[in-house]
Design a protein around this nucleic acid. Structure first.
Lengths: 339, 339
DNA sequence: TTGAAAGCGCTAACAT
DNA sequence: ATGTTAGCGCTTTCAA
């Protein structure tokens, strides 16, 4: 097939003005819902608009108004595989839905490793009115300096708290881990291990910190720590190492559900029953947690809400409103059968 | 915090021209890589550009050139929950990555139920040079008529094959189902059931058709069919119904992995062992298939490749090149432990 | 090879 | 309440 499209005869505002017998300015007012236009005129202009099937040209509008009605969603290059993470998908979803009700569109940018400067140029090229930076897992706030030129909202806190980088939305990772550990202790478990996440990612750090705080606070040992990279495979491997080190362990807290799933299969391999021999608690409450075998006890984080909150915050920022610098969304323990 | 940004002093092409001591036209030529500019001039202009940190304004450029360098990715409104589907996330990922190397940006649009016409207006408002429509699961090609105004590429075939709607990329659902059923038969299974997908979605139809063709072709009964909606919960429910109808069944093919996961837990509930008592085969090879308990035998579909192919096809279409009307990507059986 | 000039389609003062 | 008039920042003939 041939890919040509008939030269689009897009009707212009001027044509509408002619058809309605008014000036272009008036048509513009009607299109933009200005209150100071007489009802009759509004009506005739609207008639002309539908008659001609007129749709305003965005480029012209942005050029003249210096607003784009667009918001960028920036995904760190290192995390193209970030799509593998249901949490990330939920953030995108939340942001997209929150924006669906507004005049804004979401422009998704995956940072190119080929041209690391591309994103910066895009942001500075007047393409968008603001940007959402999903650095949740990486803690990378290298865009922070752009905050001076453009409203920016980050998902997840920066790795270095000193690097106070403007506006952020985060979930309460530490509290979630605290609740998980406490739950295990309350259930009478005494030899509790954890499969922690990477320590160069804020959630990895915060969840481990919450865990050790509670465990040591209860007078238990916190020597059973193995690290994974948030994938199921790494969770299984870590579980195997844990079992080797401490066959007597009776509980494990994994820093995310995928690693918990891996732990579940490692435990099945080893012939341990869950939760009778070993209790397992995860983090995220991703879409597979509820149907795992056995259903996973985990910490729910409001992932799509996080995306939505980021979007709302950015919109208010663009509007020049007062906005909280940091928002922390609550997490909540969901008790199922695994622990 | 206050949300104000210092009035952005974006350098303009004119300023670059002044700084380099040439005309705006020349700067424009350099920026756009025109071959007919003397090397010395190119150099001085480029120096001015970096000195001023100049970034061309996209709106102005689009307005003048009538090109936007942007591509829309349209998600059917009914499927905001489509993000729950790892397959969809992969498509987005594939498209975004394929576009990362080009001059195009992805604009994600979630169709608003509040204003169903919004998407149409956006597409017609000169916002993008073309669009990707992810209708894979719904078979909804209601945008087909827009093909006359704008290059469009659809993911998934339309529900009604008559409704030949321009350019599409699809995976070979029927072949995948065929391979799955044949595998079960080759393994000596004789009482084979299927948990089919919704019959108002092309993949649901195609996968069921492939299944029944092979099963009846082998002289087996195809009476064990229950329907689900592609969710794990519906898969579990369907499995329970099947077990009730035919306790003697020895295999089940689920039209996607999520339903297969549901079937797995239903079988565990019923005390059936997999694959000894019942073999289970899924479809998709989503990220949880490999770590399911037991690891799921399934049909792999090249999901991110599908997104990438859609994007590439659209780019070629926009460039006015010759493009295949329909592309079918191959699927492949992945044998693991469940069947 | 370079420059001058005319828009692209719209918004936003400023008049009326 | 409506029209007039300038641009917004860039590309693109057309001349030189």
């Amino acid at each position: 097939m041939r890919g040509s499209i008939p030269a689009g005869h897009a009707p212009t505002l001027e044509m509408v003005a002619a058809q309605a017998g008014v000036s272009r300015a008036t048509v513009s007012r009607v299109v933009n819902g200005s209150p100071k236009v007489s009802p009759e005129v509004v009506e005739s202009v609207q008639a002309a608009i539908t008659a001609l099937n007129y749709v305003p040209n965005r480029a012209a509008r942005s050029l003249a108004s210096r607003r784009t009605q667009a918001i960028a969603l920036i995904v760190p290059e290192s995390a193209a595989r970030v799509f593998d993470d249901p949490f990330f998908a939920s953030i995108v979803q939340g942001a997209a839905l929150a924006l669906a009700g507004t005049e804004y569109t979401l422009n998704m940018l995956i940072e190119s490793e080929l041209d690391p400067d591309k994103t910066r140029r895009y942001l500075l090229g007047g393409n968008v009115d603001g940007a959402l930076v999903v650095s949740h897992h990486t803690g990378d706030h290298s865009f922070a300096h752009l905050s001076r030129s453009l409203p920016l909202v980050f998902g997840g806190r920066p790795l270095d708290p000193e690097e106070s980088s403007g506006y952020t939305v985060d979930v309460d990772n530490e509290h979630g881990a605290t609740a998980a550990a406490q739950h295990l202790i309350d259930a009478g478990r005494t030899r509790i291990a954890t499969i922690a996440g990477p320590q160069d990612m804020p959630p990895g750090v915060d969840r481990l910190h919450g865990f050790t705080t509670v465990v040591t606070g209860a007078g238990l040992a916190d020597d059973l720590i193995e690290f994974g990279d948030f994938t199921a495979a790494s969770g299984a491997a870590a579980m195997h190492r844990l079992l080797e080190r401490a066959p007597e362990l009776d509980a494990v807290f994994a820093a995310n559900d995928q690693m918990a799933m891996g732990a579940l299969s490692a435990l099945a391999d080893a012939g341990r029953s869950v939760p009778d021999d070993v209790a397992v608690v995860g983090f995220d409450d991703d879409r597979y947690a509820a149907t795992a075998v056995p259903p996973l006890t985990t910490v729910r984080q409001p992932s799509s809400e996080m995306g939505a909150e980021m979007a709302r915050k950015l919109v208010r920022l663009i509007a020049g409103e007062d906005v909280e610098s940091a928002t922390i969304l609550p997490t909540e323990l969901v008790v199922r059968q695994s622990g």
